[in-house]
């Protein structure tokens, strides 16, 4: 095994170009488990810890360009206002020690259907900025990033530079089912974001299909129902039958399996429950914000 230690982003891309089989290691919270248990013996480890760019983020007008290695603990502390859904999801990851090391780049690299960043990114709207020494930078829409169980759209010579996550323009929520609060891989998870500016709702489902997915039919139904009833303007409580239909469509978007953590039917049921709850929570805070704005 060789340990490659690029000191800059350019060096990292060059190393990955030269050794496409090299396994990048950022926080190591996925990679080291595999090495410790002898599940993986890469020819090259490509250490990204010295690439400072990957630990930085910039807040633009519409989105945050989040460096691939920014740890979850920093997202929770520094980006709660801009990226509330991702900050909530980050807080549910493992433990403080893991959150101090692991980040979204590694979560995307692993592309586990259970990864907690994914539903939040899908709901908020995001693009993954990847690059190679040979072909430069390209942007992958988050909806096209997950290509199969633990598979993503990266080419062998590419690295993830950053994720461009849409800044929240309304309330966002993240909900996760597990046996306890800390150190739990999701049985299933659900992210929801209201986008009042475009009058749309977006969703993300974790651990209930081969890849993280959006519940697109549910989103379309809800967007139409909210528009039709003038809900964005009148700020009324969402009709229970609408919320129920939304929840049922979210459950129907799942394609889960039975495994040690839960059965397929439990997952489908739980996703429906989380969909209704997160819709209620976010809608309540949207209504609350409207009331305070109205009063001001």
């Amino acid at each position: 095994m060789d340990f490659l230690r690029p000191a800059s982003w350019e060096e990292a891309l060059a190393a990955k170009g030269e050794h496409p089989t090299a396994v990048p290691i950022a926080g190591g919270t996925d990679v080291m488990v595999e090495i410790n248990f002898d599940h993986r013996r890469p020819e090259y480890l490509l250490d990204l810890n010295r690439v400072g760019d990957l630990y930085e983020w910039e807040t633009g007008e519409d989105s945050v360009r989040l460096g691939a290695s920014v740890p979850y603990s920093t997202i929770m502390e520094q980006l709660r206002a801009e990226l509330p859904g991702l900050a909530l999801a980050s807080h549910t990851v493992a433990s403080p020690q893991i959150r101090n090391r692991g980040g979204v780049g590694g979560n995307l690299g692993t592309a586990s259907p259970a990864g907690d960043a994914h539903p939040a990114l899908l709901a908020a709207g995001a693009e993954v900025e990847v690059a190679s020494a040979a072909r430069g930078t390209r942007m992958i829409p988050i909806d096209a990033f997950y290509t199969g169980v633990k598979r993503n759209a990266l080419e062998p010579d590419e690295l993830i530079r950053a994720v461009h996550v849409k800044k929240a323009d309304g309330p966002q929520q993240y909900s996760k089912v597990g046996t306890r609060n800390a150190m739990v891989i999701a049985v299933c998870a659900f992210g929801l974001a209201l986008h009042p500016r475009t009058r749309t709702v977006r969703t993300g489902i974790g651990s209930a299909a081969p890849t993280p997915v959006r519940a697109e039919a549910a989103e379309e139904f809800l967007n139409a129902a909210l528009a039709e009833g003038g809900f964005w303007d009148n700020g009324k409580i969402i009709t229970p039958s609408v919320a129920k239909q939304f929840a049922d469509l979210c459950a129907a978007a799942c394609n889960p399996i039975d495994d040690v953590r839960g059965t397929a039917s439990y997952r489908r049921h739980a996703v429906g429950v989380m969909a209704r709850r997160t819709l209620t929570w976010t809608w309540e805070s949207y209504r609350g914000a409207r009331r305070t704005e109205g009063a001001a």
Partner: peptide
């Protein structure tokens, strides 16, 4: 200064 699991840090890091 940051608490981490040393079992998940590669020595070279």
């Amino acid at each position: 200064g940051v608490p981490v699991c040393s079992c998940l840090v590669a020595a070279g890091q």
